[in-house]
Computed example of a mutant assay.
Amino acid sequence: MASGDADPGTVRPGGRTARVRTAVLAAAGDALAEGGLAELDLADVARRAEVGKTTVYRRWGTPAGLVADLLADMAEQSLPRTETGTLLGDLRANARLVQRTLADARQGPLFKAVIAAATCDEQTAAALHRFYETRVDEWAPCVQQAVERGELAKGTDTREVIRAVSAPLYYRLLTTATALDEAAADRAAEAAAAAARAGVFTTGGGTVR
């Protein structure tokens, strides 16, 4: 199968094709942050990226297809997990990474737009789910390491712990006008760590004594 026939984001093309993808996704992110999915127009993205309209329409097809590839690229480019040697240290690093992303003048509005679009577009929703599954997969080993160190009970659902870290930060992003700061990130990490130690995320409700 030729790269032009593949689903967006499933290949890593080189040369000019890679440069076009980079330019188009950057332009799409800017447009999405400014106006949301409803205002995302492939011709406008092509103009911003300084590439031909035909190229954009042929490769991405629809605004939802463009958003799906944008999310795939964001997952690929996300920073790897930080390992500090303690559960709280690792969860705090994760929370601060999420906080910096959501507090960013471009990334924050972009995520708001994608989340809003995912409520009414199945392709965008699927892409968003894949993005977060990728990020949870990246950070879940930190929790498993805490289990192996004896910080957490066996049977702890590592993925649920990671989700519990970022959930309060997204809630604040979507429901308040309050700026997300490191204090909010640290509180989210501390709450998730305390709940994990109390056995909230274990199947049997066990705790570490």
Rank of each mutant, 00 (worst) to 15 (best):
A2H: 14
A2V: 14
A2G: 13
G4S: 12
G4L: 13
D5F: 07
D7R: 15
P8L: 07
P8E: 12
R12W: 01
R12N: 03
G14I: 07
G14E: 03
G14L: 03
R16N: 08
V20G: 04
R21A: 11
L32I: 03
A33Y: 01
L37A: 14
A38M: 05
E39P: 06
L40P: 00
L40G: 02
A46Y: 07
A46E: 09
E50Q: 12
E50Y: 09
G52I: 14
T55E: 13
W60L: 02
P63W: 06
L70A: 11
A72D: 13
D73G: 09
D73R: 15
M74A: 15
L79T: 13
T84H: 03
T86M: 00
L87I: 06
L87A: 01
L88T: 02
L88M: 06
D90I: 00
N94E: 07
A95S: 03
V98W: 07
V98A: 11
L102T: 09
D104E: 09
L110F: 11
A113K: 04
A113F: 08
A113Q: 14
V114F: 11
I115R: 11
I115D: 06
A116D: 11
A117P: 01
E122D: 15
A126C: 05
A127M: 10
R130Y: 10
R130V: 12
E133F: 04
P141S: 06
C142I: 02
C142V: 13
Q145V: 04
V147K: 06
R149G: 00
R149I: 04
L152Q: 08
K154H: 11
G155F: 05
T158P: 01
T158K: 12
R159I: 04
E160Y: 09
E160W: 12
S166P: 02
L169W: 02
L169V: 06
R172G: 04
L174Y: 04
A177L: 08
A177S: 10
T178H: 05
E182H: 06
A184R: 06
A184C: 10
A184T: 08
R187L: 14
A189Y: 04
A192T: 06
A192W: 07
A195C: 08
R197I: 05
V200H: 13
F201S: 12
T202R: 03
T202Q: 11
G204F: 08
G205A: 04
G205R: 04
G206V: 08
